[in-house]
């Protein structure tokens, strides 16, 4: 079964979001240390919104939301839960 983390990793791979291969990083690794720029963060967000059919509210549009795969997973999870409850 593909997990949310796998789907997030697919986005990194397909969108060349990072200068390094995402497979070399753990879910808790700091993505900014790995070269994530604020410009790339926007592309990442757009791809996440497209892939999971969610919309990031302004409250989540901050640096820390995207600092690791774990953090992104938590944010996407929260948005998917909200969607399911709506």
């Amino acid at each position: 079964m593909t997990t949310v983390a796998d789907m997030i990793r697919d986005i990194f791979r397909e969108g060349s979001i990072l200068p390094v291969d995402i497979a070399t990083l753990s879910d808790s690794a700091d993505l900014y240390t790995a070269g994530l720029t604020s410009h790339a963060t926007v592309n990442l967000m757009l791809s996440l919104e497209e892939k999971f059919d969610v919309e990031f509210p302004d409250r989540l549009l901050r640096r820390r939301t995207f600092e690791s795969i774990d953090a992104i997973k938590a944010a996407v999870g929260e948005l998917l839960d909200q969607k399911a409850a709506a």
């Binding site: 604020s38 410009h39 926007v42 990031f56 302004d58």
Partner: peptide, 13 residues
């Protein structure tokens, strides 16, 4: 250019 990029995801207030 930086703002233009951010506006792709920012919601209206």
């Amino acid at each position: 250019a930086n703002t233009a990029n951010l506006l792709l995801v920012l919601k209206d207030d």
